[in-house]
Design a protein around this nucleic acid. Sequence first.
DNA 1: TTAATTTGTTAGTCATAGCTAACTTTTTTA
DNA 2: TAAAAAAGTTAGCTATGACTAACAAATTAA
Lengths: 228, 228
Amino acid sequence: MTNKLNSNNLTKSEEDYLKALFYLIVEEDSVKVGNNQLAEYLNVSPASANNMIKKLKAKDYVISEKYGKLDLTEGGRLIAVRLIRKHRLWETFLCNYLNFTWDEVHEVAEQLEHIKSRKLIDELDRFMDFPKKDPHGEMIPNADGEYAILPKITLSSLLEGDVCELVAVNDGSVNFLKYVSEIGLVLSSEIKIIEIRDFDKSIRIQFNEGEETVTRKFADNVFVNKVI
Amino acid sequence: MTNKLNSNNLTKSEEDYLKALFYLIVEEDSVKVGNNQLAEYLNVSPASANNMIKKLKAKDYVISEKYGKLDLTEGGRLIAVRLIRKHRLWETFLCNYLNFTWDEVHEVAEQLEHIKSRKLIDELDRFMDFPKKDPHGEMIPNADGEYAILPKITLSSLLEGDVCELVAVNDGSVNFLKYVSEIGLVLSSEIKIIEIRDFDKSIRIQFNEGEETVTRKFADNVFVNKVI
DNA sequence: TTAATTTGTTAGTCATAGCTAACTTTTTTA
DNA sequence: TAAAAAAGTTAGCTATGACTAACAAATTAA
């Protein structure tokens, strides 16, 4: 049995839904997160999502009115943040100690984040000397579930002539991550916006490795700190 | 999705049954392993075990005739050995890097062994420099599923005056492991049999930390190498 | 060698968590 | 503002893997 202190007694599915809601509500900061949006995000049918939402409401992790928007309770938020903490710590471990690449870590971390042991994750944190950011540049919540959400400025929001520093990448797509690595971008790379083409909004950028033209879609997934 | 090369597509339950069968058939080297024995070992009803055995036979991991003894196919054995490899590597990691004690590792390793990623476990193995034995003294199978099963001589099989070295302990019970630690026994401890009491088969042993009287049941769970 | 006990099997139920199809409510837009 | 579209809900089905109760086969003991 799991230690009483750790055991929130949630299934893997319930955890996945709470984490998804957290991403949609808190990280994406949406005005309204609805049932179908959640279903699409998780690649399940609206009926399945609806069903699970009922369960999570009964357990007091989610609140919503009929036909209304979804929200997390404090309890639901805490569970989600702890999952994110576990996910990001495992990604950090895989990259920094087990030779995993950027694009390989996500899938395995999705499994590892469901391991139930408070001691495991806190010791892993200590072993790595309490890292602040994961390999994609995202903040890692501390043991109490506190963490700063980075103000997310995308590369696509900058103007010609601006100079920025790559602080994070959206880790949702393996193909995107592979592409980022291939053109030679890494965390902290300094990027200058050479030109934004009106025609298709594609952007010509310059950085240590040379010059590249990237699409608007690409630039939407790259988070930066404006330097100039 | 899991990499095709790793994905054996088994559920956690199916894996648990195969591992249980491996322990009962191969490690315990029983003449006959039956359905109810398997059920008892896994703390499920005979009906549940029977049901799962049907499924595993259909998938060609288990063979048996109606009302006959259970056996693993080559495929079933390989899956079980890989689980044991994962279990023991994770236990080693938890003990040697994350400050877990002997008795804490098992429960968490039971969860970790179901993580599906060939790379994860092979890199973990490399990270720890290919350990040969887990913290309880059990052999760790290599990446090809090969490993030596230690000839298991129990402390209880020795005679008065014999001297032996502790090579492994049965990791099935947390209380037992705590007890072993508390009296000061560790792997490689040299133990001398002072006296075996006819009355209750309790055994007086001497070792670095002093002398102790242990029960027959205790001695059945301690595996040794005879020295003298 | 029959009777008792143990062991194995089958049938039917439950919970989780997915699905489709049909329906209702809300929102959009013509 | 009424019709169309989108969003949300419900009902009913599926598979997995537990369970109990009832029964059959095999083994052990009388």
